[in-house]
């Protein structure tokens, strides 16, 4: 028990800080993925065919290639890619992408591919008649988007988004391979120095379970809130 204390001998404070890091990585990645998801869903629903094809390729790759492989690509290749882009703009210095940025971008790209499909499905689930009705009473595109699409997409996409958030949270564990000190990495370090791997990986599992149950509860509440106007049988 002493091992988990908060003093100089215990790993309690380190584990707490690592939990914060896990949360930071997943929140940053999830928010970035929200942006990617909404934009790509809009693109997939547009009339622009080449754009739709490009986005189809993105969602297929993002959902069909292992997360770990994508993390390795960004970890080993992130700096090179950014420096290549910088050179196009005339900057020739050395730029390094740290483990945090590589991890956030990798998870955001993967999660964004899933969220694209969630948002696309939600928009398609809105009955066509409602959009026609809005147009028939003379709503502008913007007003239609604000009053008809957004409130319903929010409700319809929420269960899917909840799943995406849980995957993002669990995928942060994979970022530990790059050396970023989140829950898994900290558990690895602690079990190495204490020779008690079972205890520390159990603690890691417990922390993840805590985070996922709290967010599961939060999403259920949010679903109740967005569904407050829906009649139920």
């Amino acid at each position: 028990m002493e091992l988990l204390g908060f003093g100089a001998n215990g790993w309690g404070d380190e584990m707490a800080r690592a939990t914060l890091m896990t949360l930071t990585v997943s929140v940053c990645a999830f928010v970035l993925a929200l942006v990617i998801g909404t934009l790509c869903a809009a693109g997939k629903l547009s009339r622009h065919k080449p754009l739709r094809i490009v986005l189809d390729i993105y969602t297929t790759l993002g959902r069909g290639i292992p997360e770990l492989l994508i993390i390795y690509l960004l970890f080993f290749g992130g700096s090179g890619a950014v420096m290549f882009l910088a050179r196009l703009f005339g900057y020739h210095g050395y730029i390094e992408i740290n483990a945090f940025t590589a991890g956030v971008v990798a998870i955001a790209l993967i999660n964004g591919a899933y969220q694209t499909e969630v948002f696309r499905g939600a928009v398609l689930a809105i009955p066509r008649g409602q959009i026609e009705a809005a147009l028939s009473i003379g709503m502008s595109d913007r007003l239609l988007f604000q009053r008809v699409l957004v409130p319903q997409v929010l409700r319809l996409a929420l269960p899917g988004l909840g799943n995406c958030w849980l995957s993002a949270l669990k995928e942060t564990a994979l970022v530990s391979v790059t050396g970023l000190v989140e829950i898994m990495r900290q558990a690895y370090v602690a079990s190495g120095s204490s020779q008690k791997p079972f205890i520390f990986y159990s603690v890691a599992a417990g922390l993840f379970l805590l985070l996922t149950s709290i967010s599961g509860f939060g999403f259920r509440r949010a679903e109740q809130w967005t569904g407050r106007g829906v009649r139920r049988a």
């Binding site: 564990a173 791997p197 990986y201 159990s202 890691a204 379970l209 996922t212 599961g216």
Partner: peptide
Amino acid sequence: VFAIRGTPLLVQIFLIYYGLGQF
């Protein structure tokens, strides 16, 4: 089901591979 779905697979792999050897 609750415990497995709520934790990353990596934790489960490490618990079995590294963790069990502790005993």
